[in-house]
Structure formats: structure tokens, C-alpha cells
């Protein structure tokens, strides 16, 4: 009988990106306690993001937002069988080390928390745990990938319940991908300069026409229709933050968003799950914001 012996490799790019590949087509939900995590899992979430306050509360409360208490993260890990992600501040590699030590499945180096370093993001190649990072355009996405991010999400404007910024970021990334694809080899050097992105990644993307890692959408998604919109715009999965547990009926909203994400091209299904859902989160018009989270990170 054939058998393989243990000469295995952990933390390779394939293994780190592999989990993001498995999350494609799914919904990752922000949860602040084990009860919410259970509701998320029961409703078909592919993963949960464990954090102390959802973005809309962070926005309301002000002050410095940091990594969550390990006790809270461990409580959520114990409550569900799906992957558990957690957030570290931009540039705060010590928080990321703690999250890796806690055995979280993905670290989000997130602009929702207060940045710890205004120059540098975390060197994500130094970690076994994979990282997701936000981006508002292709250059930013490729800089994060250059630093070792295994998954990119649009930043959107977290905690607003307003999908407009996420749409802007997705459309920008896709338009820049198309531009790169149509560029000839001579133009790529100037495009690398304009986008402020590593040349080898620019050359790779120019050939493939897509990011080397999955592209998800986050920031302001609050209804099944929002989910269907961003998936049709090219997002491969979605993060929903305040949109679920700040709605009238979180369990129903969670299930509706999961079904809309699976059947995002079937308007009959999206219509059915949108019917009689109760109020979505109230939301904020982004033009009136004092603090734009998407401007954090660079």
C-alpha cells in the first residue's frame, strides 16, 4: 500500500491563499461575542471576524481602536467550527504575532482600527498565518500583496451602511486591471511608477488580467441587494460588518445575505430573500463623515 511520509510544508503561499480560495462565494460576518458567532454559523457564514465593537460602534465611540481581547477571540473560536479571523492595527506586527499565537485563521490588517504605524504596513511574509488587507485601488492592492497579503478586500467605508465607497474601490481596481491588460510591455514601467506598485506584480497582472490573490468586498454592505451588486461587479466574496447585527432581525438578514451571495445573478432569489426583511442598519451618508477610515493605510 502506498503512503506518504511527513515532509510537509506549512505557511507556503499556496497554503495561505488556499483558505481564501475556499471562502470564495461566501459571506464573512463581523461578530462581537460567541452568541453572534453561532448565529453567523447557523446562517451559513463561511467565516467570522471576531472583534470587540463593530465598525459603526467604533465610529460612534471614537478613541483608539485596538486588537480585541484574546479572551473574546478564544470564546468565539470555541463556539464555532468555521474559520475565525481577527483584526490587527495597520503596522502593529506585535498584535499580529499575538493573533498568530492564538491560532486565528486569518489576520485582517485593518483600517477600521487606529493605525499604529504611519509609514509601514506589517511584513506579512514573516508570518505563517495568512493576512487580508484593504485596498482602494490597484496600486494599493499590489503593494499589500508585495508585503505578503494573501487576500485583498475593498476598503469601502466601514460602519456607514453605505456601499458607495466599496463600489468605487471595486470599479477602480477593475478599471486599472483592464488598463494593465491592454498595456504593451514598454508601458508597464511607467504604469508601475504611476500605480506605485512593484514591477514584477504589474507585469504578472498585465498577463493574467487579475490579481494574484482573491478579491473580496468589504465596507458598507447592508442588504442582499448590496451583496448581489458587489458580486456582479467582480467581488469573489463579501465581508459584512455592522450590516447584520445592527439590522432589525440579524438572523434573517444574515441568511438573506448568504442566499443573495450564492445566487447573486438570480434576481428572483434576491427578490425573495429581500422581501419583508425589516429595517437594514440606519447608515450614514459618507459625504457627512468626519473620519474616513478608507484613507488610513496607503
Amino acid at each position: 500500500m502506498s503512503s506518504s511520509h511527513d515532509s510537509s510544508t506549512i505557511g507556503s503561499a499556496l497554503v495561505k491563499r488556499g483558505l481564501a480560495d475556499m471562502l470564495r462565494g461566501g459571506v464573512i460576518m463581523d461578530v462581537v461575542n460567541p452568541e453572534q458567532a453561532k448565529i453567523a454559523e447557523d446562517s451559513g457564514a463561511v467565516a467570522v471576524m471576531a472583534l470587540e465593537r463593530v465598525p459603526s460602534d467604533i465610529r460612534r465611540d471614537g478613541g483608539v481602536a485596538r486588537m480585541s481581547d484574546p479572551e473574546m477571540i478564544q470564546g468565539i473560536q470555541a463556539a464555532v467550527t468555521i474559520p475565525v479571523m481577527a483584526k490587527a492595527r495597520i503596522g502593529h506586527f506585535a498584535e499580529a504575532q499575538i493573533l498568530e499565537a492564538l491560532d486565528v485563521d486569518y489576520v485582517d490588517e485593518s483600517e477600521v482600527l487606529t493605525p499604529a504605524d504611519e509609514e509601514n504596513h506589517i511584513d506579512k511574509w514573516a508570518f505563517t498565518v495568512p493576512f487580508v488587507c484593504g485596498a482602494t485601488n490597484l496600486g494599493e492592492a499590489l503593494r499589500r500583496i508585495g508585503e505578503g497579503a494573501c487576500l485583498i478586500r475593498s476598503k469601502g467605508e466601514a460602519g456607514t451602511g453605505n456601499v458607495v465607497e466599496a463600489v468605487r474601490h471595486l470599479r477602480t481596481i477593475n478599471a486599472q486591471l483592464r488598463r494593465l491588460q491592454s498595456a504593451d510591455a514598454n508601458e508597464l514601467f511607467a504604469l508601475a511608477k504611476d500605480l506605485q506598485a512593484p514591477l514584477p506584480l504589474i507585469q504578472e497582472v498585465s498577463l493574467t488580467g487579475k490579481l494574484p490573490v482573491p478579491l473580496f468586498c468589504a465596507g458598507g454592505i447592508s442588504t442582499p441587494a448590496d451583496a448581489a451588486l458587489v458580486l456582479q461587479l467582480g467581488a469573489e466574496a463579501i465581508f459584512v460588518g455592522s450590516g447584520i447585527f445592527k439590522s432589525d432581525d440579524p438572523e434573517r438578514m444574515a441568511k438573506a445575505i448568504v442566499e443573495a451571495t450564492t445566487h447573486f445573478r438570480d434576481a428572483h432569489v434576491v427578490a425573495k430573500v429581500s422581501t419583508g426583511l425589516g429595517a437594514a442598519m440606519k447608515g450614514i451618508e459618507t459625504a457627512s463623515l468626519e473620519q474616513r477610515l478608507a484613507e488610513r493605510g496607503w
Binding site: 500500500m1 502506498s2 503512503s3 506518504s4 511527513d6 515532509s7 510537509s8 510544508t9 506549512i10 505557511g11 507556503s12 499556496l14 497554503v15 495561505k16 488556499g18 483558505l19 467550527t81 474559520p83 498568530e100 491560532d103 486565528v104 485563521d105 486569518y106 505563517t128 498565518v129 495568512p130
Partner: peptide, 19 residues
Amino acid sequence: RRNGYGRQISSFETLVNVK
């Protein structure tokens, strides 16, 4: 066993000898 080989940090690649 679900996640019998561990959580993501323990995820791995290796060569498997298939009959």
C-alpha cells in the same frame, strides 16, 4: 474529524503517493 489536521496555521502541502 473536522479540522483534524488543525486550524489554518497547521495547514500544509506535501506529496501524496496515490495507488
